[in-house]
Amino acid sequence: MTSHKIALIPGDGIGVDVTDATMQVLNAAGARFGFSLETETFPWSCEYYLETGAMMPADGIETLRTFDSIYLGAVGWPDTVPDSVSLHGLLLPIRKAFTQYANIRPHRLLAGVEGPLKAEGFDILCIRENTEGEYSGAGGRVHMGQDNEVATEVAVFTRKGVERIIRFGFEQAMQRRKHLTSVTKSNAQKYSMVFWDEVTREVAKEYPEVTVSHMHIDAMCAKMVMNPADLDVIVASNLFGDILTDLGAAIQGGLGFAASANICPDEGTPSMFEPVHGSAPDIAGKNIANPIAAIWSGAMMLEHLGETEAAAAILTAIEAATAQGVGTRPGASTTEDITKAVLAALEA
């Protein structure tokens, strides 16, 4: 029997609840499809930070390096630890250390889910550059607290970084409907975004089968609301991808359905999978968090590990549950009820 070594970081708030639900489903899929998950749980979280002064130990990255994949529940407890501390102390270091440069987020309406739009039938794969760009961490503040205080946040784009995320987007488009839209703001950002457009055109020559569109971020936001069914694969920078994926989550029914993967396509280092709904401290431990995004992220992890049948079966089971109205409206189903419905559909 194939065994996959998984590092579990439940994290904060509802991350604990949805990680438990996800592992129930993934282990059931393993039993059905003939593989096992060897898991180790790490308590790295805001609570861990308050106890130790760090979001993870100094050797945390080297510890994670020995695993096949990483599963993260959620991170953040802003009442006790600033988001800038928790994010830069755990999530971002993992993404950067393991070169998880492709953030992948699927956006589509599941059966039985009513989104806020009239549009139906859209299926968008948003690919966000995940390690540089506007979130590179380059910049600083001087003369703090004074009238002449200055703060800078420098967006850093490298040819290697832009080229590899664009090429990854084209590879995904080749497996789907062969349409890629590159999102920039090159009419206003005449250096970084013009550079991004140029690299996109260069890489596009290698994929003549793919239809390529170029859109500005503001126009793309309107497009996702007015006519999302026209979109296939979207590729965007770190900041623009962040904005678009939250919009994508909104049109697919909310953050309870927002799954994601942080992928390192080129190296033998672990990728990381996480729902993107946040830690929601106000509902933590109350058995009302929607675990669908977390379970969907777990399915993406199995697909990445080569367990494609199991991944497809989990997605089918999720839709079987939502088609019955389970988990489709906030607060209408408990975490436990949603998990049981998905398990029942998976076993059936």
Rank of each mutant, 00 (worst) to 15 (best):
R164S: 09
W44M: 04
E319K: 00
V199W: 02
D123N: 14
N187L: 05
G241F: 02
D68W: 07
Y191T: 11
H214L: 15
I61M: 13
P291G: 04
M220V: 07
I243M: 06
R176Q: 09
I165H: 02
A188L: 11
P57T: 12
A313P: 04
A58N: 10
T39V: 14
P281D: 15
F33M: 05
D282Q: 13
E198T: 10
I124W: 01
R65V: 00
G15I: 05
S136Q: 05
G254Y: 10
S84L: 12
E267F: 13
I263T: 06
K286E: 03
Y49G: 02
H4G: 05
K340M: 13
R167Y: 04
A299E: 10
F157G: 00
C221P: 01
K5S: 14
F273T: 01
F98V: 01
A332D: 13
N290S: 09
D232M: 06
A229I: 01
M193I: 05
P330V: 12
P208W: 15
Y135I: 08
K223P: 00
A54L: 11
H88P: 10
E120I: 00
G327Y: 02
Q189G: 00
M174D: 12
R141T: 15
H88Q: 09
L109K: 01
D20L: 12
D12R: 08
N130Q: 07
D246S: 06
M226C: 11
Y207L: 08
A310M: 12
R177I: 03
L90D: 02
G112V: 11
K286V: 11
H214Y: 14
H143S: 13
K223T: 15
D20T: 14
N27D: 14
I234L: 15
T22S: 13
A151R: 04
T184Q: 07
V156M: 13
E171L: 10
P265T: 08
V81L: 08
A31N: 15
Y135T: 04
R176H: 06
A249F: 08
A74M: 09
F257D: 09
E206H: 07
A258E: 03
A294E: 04
R159I: 02
A344W: 04
G169V: 11
V162L: 12
G11V: 09
N262Y: 07
E114Y: 00
G241C: 07
A323Y: 05
L117S: 08
A323L: 08
V75I: 14
G89L: 01
F42V: 00
I165S: 03
M215E: 15
G34S: 11
H304F: 13
E114I: 12
H107Q: 07
S3F: 08
W196H: 04
G89R: 00
T2D: 14
K286T: 14
L110V: 01
I70V: 14
I314G: 05
I263G: 02
T80Y: 14
G306N: 10
L346S: 02
I94S: 00
M272G: 08
W44H: 04
I243S: 01
A348Y: 02
L72P: 10
L244W: 09
G285H: 11
A74R: 03
L50I: 10
H216T: 08
M272N: 06
D337M: 10
Q24I: 03
A312K: 12
L346K: 03
S3M: 13
W77S: 02
M55L: 15
